[in-house]
Design a protein around this nucleic acid. Sequence first.
RNA 1: GGGGUGGUGAUCUAGCUUGGUAUGAUACCAGACUUGGGCUCUGGAUGUCCUGGGUUCAAAUCCCAGCCGCCCCA
Length: 478
Amino acid sequence: MCAEKIKYKKEENIIEWYNTVLTSAEVADFSSVKGFTVYRPYGYRMWEILRDALDYDFKAEGVQNSYFPLLIPEKLLKKEKEHVEGFAPEVAWVTKGGNAELEEKLAIRPTSETIMYESYSKWIKSYRDLPLLLNQWNTVVRWEIKDTRLFLRGKEVLWQEGHCAFATNEEAERNAEKMIRVYAKIVREVLAVPSLVGMKSESERFAGAVKSYTIETFMPNNYALQCGTSHNLGQNFSKSFDIKFLDEKNEWHHVFQTSWGLSMRALGAMFMLYGDDRGLVLPPNVAPTQVVIVPILGKNDEEILKVSAKIVEELKKEGLRVLLDDRTNYTAGWKFNEYELKGVPVRIDVGQKEVASGEIKLKIRFTSSSEIVSLERLKEVKAVLNRVQKDMLESSERRLARVIKEERDKESFITNVSSAAEIAKVAWCGRKECEAGIKEKTKAVSRAISIEGEKLIDKKCIFCGRDAVCDAYFSQSY
RNA sequence: GGGGUGGUGAUCUAGCUUGGUAUGAUACCAGACUUGGGCUCUGGAUGUCCUGGGUUCAAAUCCCAGCCGCCCCA
């Protein structure tokens, strides 16, 4: 309803552009609680679509949904040392219940490992109870000091967290890697966002994990954005929380665990990647409205509306998400701009011309081009949407491939990473001290360590010159 | 922590130097007209001018104190 003109250009002021586009497209809004976002129906619908796709794959892996409490007692949170040290600075606390001070303050979950694993220790007694594969869709609160960006950085995050327990390290490792690949696949297929899949370095690893996997996507300015993570927790938590099982030989063992999460941030990455100066550009697979029909009224209205309704009906039969905007209090031109702002992938105008010719034009948001389809062959619309989805993904893949550069020269590496001219792929020693040195020089950290098993592009670490043990990607991060 | 800058109907904003009871646009409501790229017209509703104090016949405007926001640097 409030389509204000976008006064900012994406290239000139991406932050203002981003905020204006998301708020005026009615995706999200700011609330009076600083750092907390309101997700409006149009934006929430996209989350639902992404969520359903993920949930489907989780269930295919045998994962079940569950729900654990929002509040975590302080001593429970403190049970795993590294974990609490990692999260302590950004935990929000509840200290009062009604008027009474609580005896023990309660943390609003920054993540649910601790509260869930307390239950796990009660539920897991035998090898027959394993694997335990649970997920929950919820929100977590992290009191980050840095300023808020809709979807990308907020104090309350909508996400899912999966928490699995296994009898062996091998199973846990397989699960952690499997889930990161599920994330990469869904983000790619639904959001048309390509990502780098890899492992986190020691200093970037999740607090309490043995190994962390990540999918990293990239903003238009080449800054990396972590979109999803999957952790092999080893036995760190099972030892702190005493999660043990008896095996076939009647011997006690601590379980091996994983946790993995993907948040709404992935949508933010998609908005950033595809939006333009006219507004959002949504990939068809995540668009709440895939096709909008705008009747051009004036003369022969009855006929025009009849044809419009028929198109809607046909497209719905094809399983498409269609909207007919027959409001009379807005002009056609107003609607054109409105749906471009909202990023609707395909628009069909139905006026006298179309009624007379029996042909309609599909206006494609992503390419700003048109395509003629006969009213008799509306099934083709679906194919057009699929092609748009594919084109979008391919364009981003090409861009990502262009931005990643293999660096062999230290000075060139420092220069190019410092200025965010590229994402550097380098041979690296993997040491914490070395990463700290790189960070000091370039302000960049490692985003992912390759797990694709390709050969090292060089034998010596790009930065410190010691023996390299991995290929790593370095870039500025959001 | 240091420096800068700002706070005016729902939103953006003019007015502030030189005090005289707040301007314009958008959005909103009603009606008419219109609909092929953000129509037009008429009418309407909406203000603790950040807060408190001071000066003055009179303060959005000047003075003092405070609160809040944003930007830059550490």
